[in-house]
Design a protein around this nucleic acid. Structure first.
Length: 286
DNA sequence: CGCCAGGATTGAA
DNA sequence: TTCAATCATGGC
């Protein structure tokens, strides 16, 4: 705790804010140069990298910034995690190319809902869908003069109370009934996203996969990005392609073989390794 | 126009 | 248990 202020500098080293906020973990942060604006903890937030840290600014004074430190995962020893990676050429190159890339710790519902909307969509399109969802169903939030309007991410109760047709108006197509049913299940308390924090990873994964529109890949994204299960290893088309190209160039591997390899090869922080490979192949390779 | 996207579901083998 | 067809749509 400290004297309430609407601005703070949070100490950080080896933190690439741009790569982190633009690596397909989150879909609502917008950049203008090196400045990033987003909605967090129910309020408008502006972030900017500064020497030895990250400068944060809110509209109203904040006494306790722990929610932001937690989201940014500033306490994580990234160098130690990188040392746990396999010392092979692909990982070495990925780490070198994406220095300072981090994993965020997101709100489970926003993460889950966003990734239900992500299936077979490009990241640009996911951003558009999520933005429309928030405009139509979120609550308007105060922003500084001159800033574009901002909205909260709609809670499951709000989405459960609407119709598939109104969700489809957000351009989410066949994902609309999935999101609606998932919101209903969460709102009804049939599945508790809070209780999953205390569940072992395999149990939490199966619980998430009970939700309509949630298969193994999306469950792994939520386990990694919201719950912090470091061994979760989402395999999407990019990662499958990367594993194939970088580790199975001799003979084609099946989806099952790729999963088995991912689960055994990358170590106790495999999810971090996955994010480095993902960002590496999307931004640096080809 | 053709192809693709941070896939899941269903039914068949 | 694995595999293939199906779903749907904006960006390039």
């Amino acid at each position: 705790m400290s004297i309430p202020a609407n601005q703070v500098i949070l100490p950080a080293s080896d933190y690439n804010l741009a790569a982190t906020l633009d690596s397909g973990q989150v879909f609502r942060w917008q950049s203008a140069g090196d400045v990033w604006t987003g909605i967090l903890h129910g309020q408008w937030v502006r972030l900017r990298p500064v020497p030895y840290g990250i400068q944060a600014e809110t509209l109203q004074a904040v006494a306790d910034w722990r929610w932001l430190q937690h989201f940014l995962q500033l306490e994580v020893d990234m160098a130690a995690i990188c040392r746990s990676f396999p010392r092979d050429e692909p990982m070495t190159r990925a780490v070198a190319a994406c220095r300072g890339l981090r994993l965020l710790r997101q709100d489970p519902w926003e993460c889950l809902a966003s990734f239900i909307l992500s299936s077979t969509k490009q990241i640009v399109q996911i951003r558009q869908i999520v933005q429309r969802l928030c405009e139509d169903f979120g609550d308007p939030l105060p922003v500084p003069v001159g800033e574009p309007a901002a909205f909260s991410f709609p809670r499951p109760e709000k989405i459960a109370a609407t119709t598939e047709a109104r969700l489809r108006a957000c351009k989410m197509g066949f994902r609309a009934p999935y999101l609606l049913a998932a919101a209903e299940t969460i709102a009804a308390g049939t599945i508790s996203l809070e209780a999953l924090r205390r569940s072992p990873r395999p149990e939490a994964r199966l619980k998430l996969m009970e939700l309509p529109g949630v298969g193994g890949k999306i469950a792994d994204c939520v386990l990694l990005f919201a719950y912090g299960f470091d061994t979760a290893f989402p395999v999407d088309v990019w990662i499958a392609r990367a594993l194939q190209q970088l580790y199975f160039s001799k003979k084609p591997a099946t989806e099952k073989e790729l999963h088995a390899f991912a689960a055994s090869y990358f170590g106790p922080h495999a999810g971090f390794a996955q994010q480095y490979l993902f960002h590496y192949i999307r931004t640096k390779l080809n």
